[in-house]
Write a protein that binds this DNA or RNA. Structure first.
Length: 307
RNA sequence: GGGCAGGUAGCUCAGUCGGUAGAGCAAUGGACUGAAAAUCCAUGUGUCGGGGGUUCAAUUCCCUCCCUGCCCA
């Protein structure tokens, strides 16, 4: 029999943390976070990491365990999560995965072909990008892997770069590896996404940004800046941080920074919605002002029990 | 009360020497298998403040009214 894993997805601010918490309490289990930024230590307020109280009530995994300079990716997430899932299943617990990083959840559900990124090759590609530009990089990909190149645009240099990297390492086009990859796994995923009316979600976002400021986001970022860290490192190329860095360096006002954090968070939420909407495996749990998160959690609990 | 400057997309504004209009931002839709809170793509019909006049034709010119801002009383 397949072992079950519950996934709670949704846009930022949709209440995943709280739903996952009450679900985990009812099920007597633990939570695995699927969030590419909450993995880092020192990013607390700006990533809306669950507070100490919450973390002490229910054990959370894959959260708050990396230094900012460490590199993390979808594959590491997949392997880390699978390990914890095995562990929890061994204790007869149904793992609850909660998070908004679509790619990580996809890696967990479908697996991801095993071609790690290579620092040296990536460095070379960066040099090409800086010296010759995106078009040149794209032309290189087109000459070795026209099919993959056809599915991307020169402007999207990150995707072009990865496709080239994969080709250089394996001699195979990335689209073939994708198509050919299949992972045998004995898990059944029960996936849900929390969906709010758009205007309410945006209000929740505005309110959360205001409360982040009240909680001391500025100090959190100042502490990082004082250590010489900048949004150059990926962990800090993050909504809520990059804008505050600009404010701290004096290039924009605090008011403007707050405005931009709110706007960029909305943009981010929108991208998440696009991602999860497309993946029909995520059952929609509709929310509105009249439905509290506990009853949403209850609904999910009942569905899980029925199956 | 008088003078001046304005009233054009959700916002800030441009423009039409008369042929029903376009930028930025916002917003919306989308792509995305090892950086993904990243990276990238697409989408602009709106009584051109109301009414009247001139004209084949008015958002554009004229009159009038309303509204906003500034200045003078």
């Amino acid at each position: 029999m397949q072992k079950r894993v519950i996934i709670i997805a949704g846009a930022t601010c949709s209440g995943k943390t709280s739903v996952a918490l009450s679900l985990a309490k009812q099920l007597g289990t633990e939570i695995i976070s699927a969030d590419s930024r909450q993995v880092y230590r020192h990013l607390d307020i700006g990533t809306a990491k669950p507070d100490k109280q919450t973390l002490s009530e229910i054990r959370h995994h894959l959260i708050d365990f990396l230094e900012l300079t460490e590199v993390y990716d979808a594959s590491r997430f997949e392997n880390g999560a699978l390990e914890i899932i095995r562990d929890l299943h061994a204790q007869d617990k149904i793992p609850v995965v909660a998070g908004g990083t679509g790619l990580y959840l996809k890696a967990l559900m479908d697996g991801i072909f095993d071609v790690p990124s290579d620092e040296e090759i990536r460095g070379e590609l960066f040099t090409i990008l800086h010296e010759h530009g995106k078009e040149y990089l794209y032309a290189q990909l087109r000459s070795v892997d026209p099919v993959s190149a056809g599915s991307m645009l020169p402007q999207n240099w990150k995707r072009v770069m990865r496709a080239l990297e994969v080709f250089k390492m394996t001699g195979k086009p990335i689209h073939e590896l994708q198509k050919g990859y299949q992972r045998d796994i004995d898990l059944e995923f029960l996936s849900f996404q929390l969906v709010w009316p758009r205007d309410i979600l945006y209000e929740l976002i505005d309110n959360r940004v205001d409360s982040m400021m009240a909680l001391g986001l500025e100090d959190e970022v100042r502490t990082l800046a004082a250590q010489g860290l900048t949004p150059e490192i990926n962990a800090l190329n993050t909504v809520g941080y990059k804008e505050m860095f600009e404010y701290i360096s004096g290039s924009i006002s605090q008011e403007e920074a707050i405005r931009l954090v709110k706007r960029n968070t909305r943009h981010y939420a929108k991208r998440q919605l696009t991602w999860f909407r497309k993946d029909k495996r995520f059952e929609e749990v509709l929310l509105n002002a009249a439905i509290d998160l506990d009853s949403a959690a209850q609904k999910i609990f009942e569905k899980v029990n029925k199956e």
